[in-house]
Write a protein that binds this DNA or RNA. Structure first.
Length: 641
DNA sequence: TGGGGTCAG
DNA sequence: ACTTCTGACCCCA
């Protein structure tokens, strides 16, 4: 008897696509140099092939192969270096933004460089409602809610690409004709195919896609047919316990055939399920294998480890959320891990595809070392890592300052002055879209070679963190200078907190990271997908008379700072430029603008609470600036160049 | 918030 | 050889 209550109910209302670019690193090179496409191409990191194109695989190469071996197997292989990740990261971001363009709800989530999840539920529902059941073969998929001509024709009676199980459309056609899910998955498969085609046409990338109702299932099912293909996990997803369906499918009632989800997921090795990693799969394996009384064939003495499949675990006597909770729970482990894992084992994953994110939640740089045990070497490495980190921050957290959108009213002093600046000086300035508040230093001490062997626990990295000084946001200073300052003032003290002993340590790794991002406020957080209506509205407003008002000024700092900042004496520690010069320039060239800023100060304004301070940072140097002084502060930067 | 663990690509 | 260089999320105090 099946214990119904132990299996969480399926919720298959969503349609989720999982996109995986084929042999990603290799493809990036192929696009830069199309001549490589027809050749066996391998990407090298250290002494290994990290990935290779399918031509190379056809000739016997594979991932994580030694270079020496690869050359033996395929002497004419073209090997390129893949240690510098910048090009891969850039291409990945570009593809991500392109793919976002297909979504309506902005639910698009990147996993690593080469995978993207899309929640296309809304698009599918919309098109499902549009289907004409009298002529499904000549359906039209609408990609836009506004323009019914944007889209593509398709045959809504068949799945695009592969399906799992193979030929399942014919097998249970009678049941599925009435299945809502069946229709929605068909729609999903055609949308997936369209996106794949567009990725090739517009970006030159081939990809592999999985189509199902959750991140878990779409990711897993996509693996069935690679490369340049797609697979849809077909219904029924539910166990057939409806009496009528029960009789119709009496021949399928063998337990493994109750639903295609179970059929599909049961065959996977337990460690292949996303979310069940090395540690957890080991714990589960040990438990399942260490009770061989139930299963004669499984012997642990032989030393050969039997593979444990999801099916083995799912059907293990007494297995359920409680048992998994006992197995996997404990201090440090995630709350409700047993229930979550039991869900995964039953093909249930309710986790959301997250909204598109413009900024990462952390940026870190690390390097590993054979031996690193002198303070001088450490300083040198800190400087190198810091340099890379600050450059990365300028790439990932900086954005072209385009016409100052939405968030602040178009006639606010900031926007006004900003327009003046970019118009008259035609300065293509940059702004920070986020400010990390914290910097962290991590090291991995070399394992104490021959200790009393208590436990070689995963006890790997140790770290210290502290506030990130705001001078690092100063774009007018040379990186080298900022690095030197950051190392001396922040990282060296942090290092000594981490390693108080003068000698005796030996590091195998150093990592420097910035975290705790505070996003600079923009209206929608995406910075993309301009609203046409809003643009028109704005144009009108720009023509209106200036309004003098500003409600974003924190009360506590205005009195002490107002004079200082308006006279631009560089009260922010990060400002290095000559104050008098900037000041002079402002007064001579920007009198009106300055007056404008002055007027603003004298207005009777309302104050916002402390919370608003985060949005009153200078985009350029990161200094906290009262809103009323921001306009003048911007001028200062512009003229400082 | 600081420090650490697990998982993933 | 579970490597390397990340990044996300979760837990505990």
């Amino acid at each position: 008897m099946l214990c119904e209550g132990m299996i969480p109910r399926r919720r298959d209302g969503r349609i989720i696509l999982h996109i995986d670019y084929d042999a990603y690193f290799a493809q990036v090179y192929e696009i830069e140099n199309p001549a490589l496409r027809s050749l066996p191409l391998a990407v090298q990191q250290k002494q290994i092939i990290v990935t290779c194109n399918y031509e190379a695989r056809r000739r016997g190469l594979h991932k994580l192969q030694l270079i020496s071996e690869a050359r033996k197997v395929c002497p004419d292989v073209v090997i390129v270096l893949g240690e510098q990740l910048d090009r891969f990261r850039d291409a990945s971001k570009d593809l991500y933004k392109y793919i976002e363009g297909f979504t309506w709800n902005k639910k698009v989530e990147r996993l690593g460089f080469d995978e993207v999840f899309l929640d296309v539920t809304d698009i599918i529902s919309y098109n499902q409602a549009l289907l004409n059941s009298n002529d499904l073969r000549h359906a039209f998929f609408q990609l836009s809610r506004n323009d019914p001509t944007v889209g593509f024709p398709f045959d809504a009676t068949t799945v695009a690409g592969h399906e799992y199980p193979e030929g399942s459309a014919q097998l249970s056609a009678s049941e599925m004709e009435h299945s809502e899910l069946y229709t929605r998955l068909i729609l999903g498969s055609h949308l997936a195919q369209h996106i794949r085609h567009k990725l090739v046409e517009e970006k030159g990338y081939t990809s592999t896609v999985g189509i199902s109702t959750s991140k878990l299932l779409s990711k897993l099912v996509g693996n069935l047919h690679k490369p340049r293909s797609q697979t849809t996990l077909m219904p029924p997803y539910e166990r057939l316990d409806d009496p009528q369906a029960f009789r119709d499918h009496i021949s399928m009632l063998d337990e493994s055939c109750t639903s295609n989800v179970t059929l599909f997921i049961d065959s996977h090795d337990i460690g292949k399920i996303p979310g069940i990693g090395f540690k957890m799969s080991q714990k589960i394996r040990n438990h399942v294998l260490s009770r061989p009384a139930q299963i004669e064939e499984v012997l642990i003495y032989g030393g050969t480890r039997e593979s444990v499949t999801v099916g083995d675990v799912r059907r293990y006597p007494g297995m359920g959320p409680e048992m998994l909770e006992k197995l996997l729970g404990g201090p440090g482990s995630e709350r409700g891990i047993g229930y979550k894992t039991w869900g995964l084992i039953n093909g249930i994953d309710d986790s959301e595809v997250s909204m598109i994110r413009k900024v990462p939640s952390q940026i870190s740089i690390e390097d590993s070392y054979i031996r690193l045990d002198t303070i001088a070497e450490v300083y040198k490495e800190l400087r190198m890592l810091c340099t890379t980190l600050l450059k990365r921050m300028r790439v990932d957290l900086l954005e072209d300052e385009e016409e100052e959108e939405d968030f602040q009213s178009p006639d606010s002093p900031q926007a006004m002055v900003s327009r003046l600046v970019s118009h008259v000086a035609s300065t293509a300035s940059k702004r920070w879209i986020a400010h990390p508040k914290t910097i962290r230093l991590t090291t991995r001490p070399r394992p104490p070679l021959k200790l009393s062997s208590t436990r070689s626990r995963t006890f790997n990295r140790i770290s210290r963190s502290g506030p990130l000084p705001s001078f690092v946001f100063n774009l007018h200073e040379e990186i080298d200078v900022l690095v030197e300052k950051l190392v001396q003032e922040t990282l060296v003290p942090m290092f000594h907190r981490l390693h108080p002993e003068k000698l005796g340590w030996n590091l195998s790794l150093i990592n420097i990271g910035v975290t705790n991002m505070v996003e600079t406020a923009t209206s929608d957080g995406t910075g993309r997908g301009r609203d046409i209506g809003r643009m028109f509205k704005r144009q009108g407003e720009v023509l209106k008379e200036w309004k003098v008002e500003d409600k974003d000024i924190p009360p506590d700092i205005i009195n002490e700072r107002r004079v200082e900042i308006v006279t631009s004496d560089g009260s922010s520690p990060g400002l290095q430029a000559e104050p008098s010069t900037a000041n002079e320039a402002m007064e001579t060239n920007w009198e009106d603008a300055l007056n404008f800023a002055q007027i603003t100060m004298d207005e009777d304004v309302e104050w916002e609470d402390e919370e608003s301070q985060g949005s009153n940072r200078c985009h350029t140097c990161g200094a906290g600036i009262p809103a009323f002084a921001m306009a003048a502060h911007r001028l200062y930067h512009t003229l400082g160049d």
